[in-house]
Design a protein around this nucleic acid. Structure first.
Lengths: 192, 192
DNA sequence: GTCTATACCTTGATAGAC
DNA sequence: GTCTATCAAGGTATAGAC
């Protein structure tokens, strides 16, 4: 990795952070360039317009998800460690300056988004829900988890609750995570 | 209600709509004044700065909640109709141009908010969660609902999931509500 | 209470030198 | 690849006439 690619990486990293802290409309090119010690125009060289930059963020976020969920087999096909991984991931993200999730961030700025970014986020939601759905289904089959209803819907509901939790945590503190995750464990019969 | 108060009401109504569609940073005074057929300065007369306006929105939203939850006794102390009311309220809000809830909208713009607005939103979260907590607790006592764990935490989790759902609905359509609410009913043993 | 006019700032984006 | 310089557009907010 040479100096050139390094700047590009740094731009993405900084923008990612800003995006999950302030939303699409809440940060500017200056917010990125200043901490990096470069000028406005340098960002435009790498990403001509803001949508190009955000497109890249979603792609990176999606990669992170694939990488995370791809480790499924490493747990020997068990469902519970996968769920614990999701909980840990959430806390870790909030702890490293990414308080809200990208779905929530983009939902607020929905009307300003180009169509392809909407589509990319839609795919991100579908993929993460599908993954959790498979975990839930397998867990129920294997007797690790207990719940009624369609795994797909249950998965969406859990994903939605975690997304909402991250936003509530901003106002009520990150202490809500431990309590809420305990409740999810109870709801899924994981405390037995 | 004379013409003067009417303009003020209209400003609040329009801003409320815009706020729940585009977030704190996503709308301007011009977005409010144009559809109302007045000028920029007219808004500033009623609300000197943007924070004053948003303060009023939260107050109004909070009133709406109190009014809604205050009808508890009208249902004869039954829990299930209260929950159905919450579901119906969510769908109704999304149907009348308020896709995201105010908690989610403000969570994204958190860093731009004055302290008193943060506090007001915090109180709004607490009040709505407390109300749902009482409904859940009573419902369990009366045998209407079935769930394990602390009603307060369970309430927060349900509130979080509805908040997240409204954001997911923006990308995946409002069809998610019916499915998700059915799942909540299943989780609470309301389908028996 | 609403208007016109305007001050002042930040934004995303571009052109051209180095 | 990064810089300086600059742009047009749009933002919040204020002053003063009506």
């Amino acid at each position: 990795m040479n100096a050139l690619t390094n700047t590009r990486e740094q731009i993405i990293e900084t923008a990612h952070q800003l995006m999950l802290q302030r939303g699409y409309n809440g940060f500017s090119y200056k917010d990125i360039s200043k901490p990096l010690g470069v000028k406005n125009a340098a960002i435009h060289y790498h990403f001509p317009c803001k949508a190009d930059l955000v497109r890249e963020l979603i792609r990176e976020n999606h990669e992170l998800l694939k990488q995370m969920t791809g480790e499924f087999m490493a747990y020997g096909g068990e469902a519970r460690p996968q769920l614990e991984g999701l909980f840990a991931f959430t806390v870790q993200q909030c702890g490293c300056g990414r308080p809200i999730c990208i779905i929530g961030a983009l939902a607020v700025d929905y009307e300003d988004l180009p169509e392809d970014i909407k589509a990319a986020n839609e795919a991100f939601i579908s993929d993460s829900t599908s993954w959790l759905s498979r975990v839930l289904e397998l867990g129920r089959e294997q007797g690790e988890l207990e719940f009624n209803g369609d795994p797909e819907i249950k998965a969406m509901l859990i994903m939605a609750s975690i997304q909402g939790l991250r936003q509530i945590a901003r106002f009520h503190g990150t202490g809500v995570f431990a309590k809420a995750f305990d409740q999810i464990r109870i709801d899924l019969g994981m405390n037995t």
